[in-house]
């Protein structure tokens, strides 16, 4: 990246994104990713060249609407099935370490 074309991303931003994504990246990883993502973003930013206001967005490749389910109870997991993959449990609940933040 030349001085006239600065990286679209700096290390502080990558660290912020890693925090949003809940990944405890090491400083080395942050540095490496900052460089790699800079290159990638430069190459993919060209989407905005053709994305003019008159073009509608497509989020589903095949256009469907109103796909619903009848309000009828179905099979549930047993408690043992539900907890079968739990790294840690306490009785019939999943156990996690203390929570720092608050409910959103």
């Amino acid at each position: 990246m030349s001085a006239t074309n600065p990286s679209p991303l700096d290390a502080a931003q990558v660290a912020h994104l890693a925090n949003l994504a809940r990944i405890a990246l090491t400083p080395e990883e942050i540095e490496k990713l900052t460089g790699e993502l800079g290159v990638i973003i430069e190459s993919i930013a060209k989407v905005s060249e053709v994305a003019t206001p008159d073009v509608p967005a497509t989020s589903h490749p095949i256009r469907l609407a109103n796909v619903f389910r009848a309000d009828v109870p179905g099979e549930t997991l047993t408690v043992e099935q539900a907890l079968s993959g739990a790294p840690e449990r306490d009785g019939d609940r999943f156990k996690v370490s203390a929570i720092l933040g608050e409910e959103q």
Binding site: V47, V50, A51, T52, T58, S59, P61
Partner: peptide, 8 residues
């Protein structure tokens, strides 16, 4: 948003 337009 732009990528979704490219999709169109």
């Amino acid at each position: 948003g732009s990528a979704q337009k490219v999709r169109t």
